[in-house]
Every structure is written in structure tokens, then in C-alpha cells.
Design a binder for these strands. Structure first.
Lengths: 237, 237
DNA sequence: ATTAAAATATGAGTAATATCATGTTTTAAA
DNA sequence: TTTAAAACATGATATTACTCATATTTTAAT
């Protein structure tokens, strides 16, 4: 299956929305960038890059949602990070000149700007701001990952499930109704993030439903009692 | 208790050993660095910096060993990273201009170079290599953290304990006998890294001992059957 | 529209691991 | 050197969470 190339000559649209990684660049920088990128669309489930592959580009999510995941024990998937509009992906391996240690998969139909590797690395030399911004992002990811480590080490599955729902909310927010999570996952994917079995994930969501913390409608999850969810997570954020 | 300031005028010693972060700098860069750093010694158990504090310096471990840890649920400590000679610490918060999200504690008597914050940030502008090196290190930490996440999500306590011993070996190596780990931890600290209870950690180490995988002598751990330990960890590295 | 496959749901049994209790050894302080 | 505290060790029990089994619902393909 070949991906569509969209006609998206520059990053003005994204930058105008104020949520693009390339916000930092001035007008001149942006138009130069435009010469070295193409916009590609991916259907839900398609891979943007693959674990163990070498990075050839920096990706910037224009529209859609992406998960970064890796295959662990016995083929079990682990979701490591979630990517929302305006976020970049593939920077860690690119900037440190390593293979990818996880794969990027579109969790809904997505449109992604692909910035040539060499151009980007050159640009970080010309615009040190860009490099500092990458450092800031990797630092944030490291902090998030280490918070996840503490959670996995010290919290039970119920607390981690509550945390996961709060994390999904923090990342993608709500639909206009102000309660329904603006993202859907299969129960298995949720289990893969929480670090539990699919059955346990299903059971816990049903329990949260019975406890009037959430409401379930297929894959849609509505958080009807946020204070109680926060209490269930037993955390400060 | 006040810390001793050692007379260590430049990084030549460390750099000569080929394991200092500041290897990258040329002679001129090193002597400039020397003007902006002091060397401080810490006794075992002393804090180099504290969770939630603001970074005022970059630290470079000259001699000794350090753990980065955070206080999680109910005051339980979580060991997040281990620092060996030549490694820097405190870079994440410093470079991304945030508070520390973990504390640094000497796990044995240590000697640490303290590089002034402003000088270091300035130096990263003058020597972009330095910034790229920090990126490389944070990237490695992120990868390590995410591998730990997969392990905590998908492996049982026995496998994680075997992994932990292999990690201690990979970080600090062996004593000259080629079998005894060149680092000692309390059983509680090991439990805090593995993400289990102290009793379970004690029990598992006893089991490994009975299974002739390791030999215990107080806090000293001798790996007597590395192939069997690798098999127990059930991992590829 | 029909059908097969995948996802969701739930119960029952089991295994892994935590907790509690208690005793011993080691360490550090007076 | 003595003594108290901390660390280590191990058994018994409790709890959590996984696995297996089976049924239902949803999704996607024909």
C-alpha cells in the first residue's frame, strides 16, 4: 500500500496553530525547511518506522495520533509513548545516531511531515535553538519514562489503570462534551500500556464503570467522576 | 557536615583515563573548564542534589559511585539510574531548565567535580559537541528507562532480579577476581531497583545462591554461573 | 446480508508475590 | 566492648493478578 503525499508546501498551518515543533524557526527558516520535507498520510495501523531500523528522517505529526511501541516478551507489545498533533517523532535515534528502539504506528489516520535527516542535522547546527528544543523534549520523555518506572514498581494494577486514563486525558484531552477521551484504544492496547493482562484491563474498566468513575460505550471512555479517578490513581498529578 | 574540597586543578587525570565526559574538549577548553569547577568529596549516603531542587551546577563523578533515586509511594525509594566514574549527573534538569525529579546520593565515598551552571550552558554554545554529547547521554538514558519499563511490565520478579544483577555488572563490572560485583547494595536497595518487596529480594538472592548461580558473602555478590544467570534473565543482552 | 474472526466480557481456579511474624546476624554507636 | 538498631533471613498466610475456559458482542471481509 503506497501512502499519499499531500500538497502541504510549508509548516505555516501547523505553526499558526501554535503547536508545531518548528514554531522556533523564523519565516526564512520555515521556507527553507519546506524545501526538505514532504507530507505523507498513514492509515490507522500503518508503521511510520520500525524498531531496529535506521532513521532517515525526522517526523512531525500534522494530523492524527501515533503510538511508539516495542515488542517485548513473547511478542507482547509495550506502548512506550503517545504522540499528538505538533509533536515530533523519531528524534531520539536520529539525533543520537542509533537504530530505533521502538516502532511508530498510526493509531488513527494521520498526516505526517517527513523532514530529511541530513537537512535536519544541518539545521540543528545552524539553529542551536532547534537542538535545545530536542534536548528539552527528550528530557521530558525521560522524566515521564522514569515516573512510569516508579508507577510500575510501586503501584498496583488498579492504580496504574487510573493513571493510564489520566495520562490519555493529559495527552489527547476530551471531545467537545468535556468528558469523553479524545482517543480510543483496544482493551489490549490499554493493557499493554498499563503492564497487565488484557483480561485484567477489561475487568478493571468494568469495575470503574460499576463504581461510576467512568462510562463505557464500546471503545469510547467517558470520565464521569474525575475526582474519584484521581483518588483511585492515588497520585498527585 | 561540610564537604572537603580537593585540590584537583584540571580534568587531565580523568581525561587521561579516557572515561570523562569532558574528553571532547581540547586542551584549551579543559583549562578554561578548570577555572569554573571545584572538586568536592561526599561520604557514603550524602546527597549531591535533591529532588525538587533547582540545578545550579553540572556534576562529574571523579571517584566513587552514585545512585539517582526518587521517593515514590509511601516513602518507598526507587532507584532510577546508577552513575559510575567519568559519568556526569544533573544534566537533565540543568539543560532543560527544570527542577530535579530525582535525588543523587553517594553509594560509596565519592569525589565529584562541580561545574558552574552558567559556565556550562555557555560552554555548550561555544562547543556544540558538548551539547550533542549531552543529547547522546540523555538518549541512552531514555532508551534504558524504556527497556526497564518493558521489563517491569512483562517480566516476573525472578527474571527482573537476574536482569538487575546483570545491570549492576554492566555498570560497575567485577572486582579483580572476575566474579564479584564491584558494587554493594543493601537488599532493600536491590528491591527498590527491581520493583519488589525487600523480603522477595532476599528470598530470590537466597534461591540464586542455592541454585549455584551466585554466591553471597554479606553484601558481596559473586556471579559464579553467568550463563545460568543470563538464562534466568531470559533476555538477549 | 452473511459469516468468520476478532474483541469484549466474566467466572473459576491457580500461581506469583506481598505482607506479617519472628528469629538471627551484622553494623554502628555509645 | 557492650548494646541498640538496622539489616538479613525464613516460614506462614493473605492477596493480587494471571491464566484458562467459555460466552457474547462487535468488527470486518466476502
Amino acid at each position: 500500500m503506497s501512502n499519499l503525499k499531500e500538497n502541504n508546501p510549508d509548516c505555516t498551518t501547523c505553526v499558526a496553530h501554535g503547536h508545531s515543533f518548528f514554531n522556533i524557526l523564523d519565516k526564512e527558516g520555515l521556507s527553507e525547511l519546506a524545501l526538505h520535507k514532504t507530507c505523507v498520510t498513514y492509515k490507522r495501523g500503518q508503521f511510520i518506522f520500525n524498531e531496529n531500523g535506521f532513521p532517515h528522517a525526522l517526523y512531525c505529526l500534522n494530523r492524527g495520533k501515533v503510538k511508539l511501541c516495542t515488542i517485548g516478551v513473547d511478542g507482547k507489545e509495550q506502548i512506550l509513548r503517545l504522540v499528538k498533533t505538533g509533536d515530533i517523532l523519531g528524534y531520539r535515534a536520529l539525533i543520537s545516531n542509533e537504530r530505533y528502539h521502538c516502532s511508530a504506528v498510526a493509531i488513527e489516520d494521520s498526516s505526517i511531515c517527513v523532514v530529511d535527516r541530513n537537512y535536519f542535522l544541518e539545521a540543528t547546527r545552524k539553529h542551536p535553538q532547534l537542538l535545545f528544543e530536542v534536548v528539552r523534549i527528550i528530557s521530558r520523555d525521560l522524566k515521564t519514562a522514569e515516573e512510569h518506572i516508579v508507577s510500575l514498581s510501586q503501584r498496583n494494577v488498579r492504580e496504574r489503570m487510573a493513571e493510564a486514563l489520566l495520562f490519555f486525558k493529559a495527552t489527547f484531552g476530551f471531545l467537545p462534551d468535556g468528558q469523553t477521551l479524545n482517543v480510543t484504544f483496544s482493551r489490549e492496547e490499554i493493557a499493554d500500556y498499563v503492564g497487565t493482562s488484557t483480561e485484567s484491563a477489561i475487568r478493571l474498566l468494568s469495575e470503574f464503570n460499576q463504581d461510576k468513575i467512568i462510562e463505557l460505550d464500546g471503545k469510547k471512555i467517558k470520565i464521569t467522576n474525575l475526582p474519584k479517578l484521581l483518588k483511585t490513581a492515588n497520585t498527585n498529578d
